[in-house]
Design a protein around this nucleic acid. Sequence first.
DNA 1: AGCGAAATCTTGTCAGTGCAAAGATGGCGT
DNA 2: ACGCCATCTTTGCACTGACAAGATTTCGCT
Lengths: 196, 196
Amino acid sequence: MTAVDDAARPYHHGDLRAALLAAAEQELADAGVEGFSLRAVARRAGVSHAAPKHHFGDAAGLLSALAAEGFRRFLATQQAREATAPPDARSQLLAAGLGYVDFAQARPALFRLMFGSAKPDFATPDLQQAGRAAYDHLCVQVQALGGGANDVAAVWAMAHGLADLAMSGRLLPLHAMSQEEREAALSDAILRAIPG
Amino acid sequence: MTAVDDAARPYHHGDLRAALLAAAEQELADAGVEGFSLRAVARRAGVSHAAPKHHFGDAAGLLSALAAEGFRRFLATQQAREATAPPDARSQLLAAGLGYVDFAQARPALFRLMFGSAKPDFATPDLQQAGRAAYDHLCVQVQALGGGANDVAAVWAMAHGLADLAMSGRLLPLHAMSQEEREAALSDAILRAIPG
DNA sequence: AGCGAAATCTTGTCAGTGCAAAGATGGCGT
DNA sequence: ACGCCATCTTTGCACTGACAAGATTTCGCT
């Protein structure tokens, strides 16, 4: 196929892998992790229901790739927050925590896939590495403050708890707050977990 | 079928509702929230796949009832911990937090159903009330310490984060610890969130 | 160029699932 | 004794994930 005219799509998609990932993210946002359907993803991308097989094997493969991509964006969201924060280690760690919560609220379905689902195969090298990178980033920040393993656990748990509860709409007071109040309340909580 | 001899079971189960709830909990523990199958529950209980319909309507109904039962046990687990702790408000709140983590590790599938799933209908009166009772219990404890809404959020988030991460096996250092060390590490983290 | 091999995508099939409707059974009140 | 009705089963439908086999295109190699 040298020329693609009209609406007739070529037999080969061109970049189906990327298209499927994008469609899967949409599907995930619309139907949630539990209502996720591989066939619906294929429909969304305009290909047959078996097309994903060649690129991802099965549903777990697709979701693993999506979760890995999620962890990369997760880290990027935290780093974006850090870039606008004061350079001292404490402020940087706080910013990372706020970014953690930001991500969960901005992409709840992806967050659930990454932290609350058993569907992805977390032994996949790509996924494992992406998750590890996010974890290492946290460890480095805590160490810069002179903290140890207990501090890593405390900070992580606090940020994760806030993110998970806020994402699932259980921290009701938070929703009634203005942006500034919300930020202040989250910061207050996160700072409690940070040593010093 | 007038006479029931051998292994032939009677047409009417007797207490199918309770049997289904028990079977559902087993199924949940074995297959996880995402692999949960209503028909498998029915098989486990030895009835036809449509039998649950009369008692619970659909899968969401069954899971809602199970989640409500989960919240009651969740509260009971916390209270059991409190009973063995010093009576001062601070120790009681700490005990509740440790109970929170206990529950998640003892019944991970149930915990995921209660906090990480969209399958139960959280607007169900029974479920809503059970969840509310657990939340109120936390609020009362925080208020006994003179804390406010921010303190409730901080303590809840810390306990929930620890529970969720520990349950999903992400707090690796925790697994390598002895019981005492583990307890001490969790207490250290929880106490950071408690005011005073 | 051109030809075979491999990659990519489609169609077809099968077992399993949730849900709904209709039929079978037996307890219970009158 | 009779009929009502809650309970349970059977049957049917649409959907899903996984697999197999076939169709189509592209790529590599000569």
